[in-house]
Amino acid sequence: MEESLLIKKAIDGDLDAFNQLVLSYQELAFNVAYRIMSNEAAAADATQDAVILMYRKMDSYRGGSFKSWFLRIVTNTCYDELRKLKRRPTVPLEPETDEGDLVESAEWLADKSIGLEEAAINAQLEKAIQDCLNQLNPDQKTVMVMVDVSGENYETVSQVIQSPVGTVKSRLSRARLRMQECLKNKRELLPEQFRLNYEDENV
């Protein structure tokens, strides 16, 4: 069924039409939430809250890109959750070794399709990038995640953050420069092929 028809039905209160829209965008929404929250459980909660909020606010949808509208709700919900977490920090219930050290429960350990070495490289890379993403301010982080991780175009991102395309470009470029600086400090942790070359920095 066409998206515009689904949207119209959802606005009229058709739950099935609404759920079809949710299913279309839930993976994108969850991945954006995950990169912003950097925690799967928190990202799932934020996505679910965003879906509920979207259902309540369907009447206020005024046309335009539904994806952008949904992603705006998701990012706003994520930053609301992050603010709450900042006020009430929580301790994750990670398994511990006999010595009391946390057992790293990396996602790649469960993935049997790739080799252990490749999985370890991916985990290191992901951790380094996620750490650097977390150091960006929310505006830069949102733009960086949507363009470089989710592959959205500038127009969609500009609708999500409700700013001109020029602002998206400059924020993105600043975010990338900061990421470079951050990853330079983690150079030893990165796989060889992903080490940024700083030999000629002082040229």
Partner: peptide, 27 residues
């Protein structure tokens, strides 16, 4: 140099795996 570094960074970011949703978020 900035252009070159940013290209590399973009490639690196594209390596990040996509997470599958833990459950459907439909209501």
């Amino acid at each position: 140099e900035s252009y070159r570094q940013q290209q590399k960074l973009k490639q690196m970011m594209a390596q990040l795996p996509t997470r599958s949703v833990p459950h459907n978020f439909s209501l």
